[in-house]
Design a protein around this nucleic acid. Structure first.
Lengths: 194, 194
DNA sequence: GACATAAGATACTAGTTAGTATGTTTTACA
DNA sequence: TGTAAAACATACTAACTAGTATCTTATGTC
């Protein structure tokens, strides 16, 4: 990786951290250059404007992380019920990447930006759809192999799961990790009965 | 209601609308005085600062609305399963107060403000707890009267329901009303099996 | 090692932000 | 109906905002 690529990635990573904590609109470019010690000239050399940086963040940080943590674990799953639970547990208990007080970076951006910028909305909806499809595919195959009742609708269950995840991230912000614990417990019962 | 009270309420109501659409931090006082045609002097006569207005909003608009739409329908409920479903349906289908693109005002504020202001976080957590307790109470009484299995934990179900609601509001922002429809359908099945 | 260009640094701008200082006008009530 | 206080209006400030113009320095290539 060239020196130039390094600073670009560095800016993206630090911006991500700031935005995760304070929100996109409340994170100023001056904030970013202050914490990175990268100058304004450097910032605007690598990004045309703030939006391009924000979209870069989604494409180059959020997207690959989502694939790794939320899509890949479901690919070719032999036991979706268990794997979905394990995935949720992993996501909610991962304190290296996530923080209860700050919630989920992707959910935060959806909340803040989708009504304000159609470009952000479009890119973020791609992420959601990716996860949605991964869940539906896993549930479908589980129905084929008789591991899940055939009278349930995978699309509905996917929406229930994604909503549950997003919602408990929000809930965690005001109620703390206890919300995660209760959710995971409730999720287990919910998955059982599918 | 005196003239003075009227302008105060008017400011709060219009601020609420703006904040619902753009977020709290992105709604400037200049935005507010521009749309209300109330002058800056009037604004700062009624509110010490922006935060006091924001908190007023929570206490005087969000709180009573939450009581009416999310707590009262569960009080003395003879059939919580049905009443919870009806409440969710009412909330998600009410287009006079809510808008898919803007989600739920309370959820939005939690998302945006709880990590940024402990005062907002505290006030908002009260709202959540109020709803949580109303749900738990309803589920408890349903267990007593044999309408719900006794091996389920009302606290967990409450977290599942609140998370589901909050999450589908987020999901709706990027996926549209289809998310609401799928959620309500999934919710019905979920409640059945309790 | 010259030189073109990539990468980064500095100083600025025009507009916006919350909040204040200092006025003027209503309103309630004696 | 006079007057004190409540309610509102106007003009300003200091700090911050995204972005630009213009410069300097580093880097790879022949």
């Amino acid at each position: 990786m060239s020196k130039s690529e390094q600073t670009r990635d560095y800016i993206l990573q630090k911006s991500f951290d700031l935005i995760y904590q304070k929100g996109y609109q409340s994170t100023s470019i001056d904030d970013i250059i202050a914490t990175t010690h990268v100058t304004k000239g450097a910032f605007f050399y690598h990004f045309k404007n703030k939006e391009e940086m924000g979209l870069g963040l989604i494409g180059e940080l959020l997207y690959p992380n989502l694939r790794n943590m939320m899509v890949r674990p479901l690919e070719d799953s032999q036991d979706p019920k268990t794997d979905i639970y394990k995935m949720m547990e992993m996501l909610l208990n991962d304190t290296s990447f996530f923080n209860v007080d700050y919630g989920c970076p992707a959910i935060n951006l959806i909340e803040e930006m989708s009504a304000v910028s159609t470009t952000f909305k479009r890119e973020l909806s791609k992420l959601v759809l990716l996860w949605h499809n991964a869940i539906v595919t896993a549930l479908n195959s589980a129905q084929s192999s008789g591991l899940i009742k055939t009278n349930i609708a995978p699309e509905e269950v996917a929406v229930m799961l994604i909503s549950g995840y997003g919602g408990v991230r929000t809930l965690g912000k005001v109620m703390g990790r206890g919300a995660y614990k209760a959710y995971l417990s409730g999720l287990k019962s919910y998955l059982m009965q599918l």
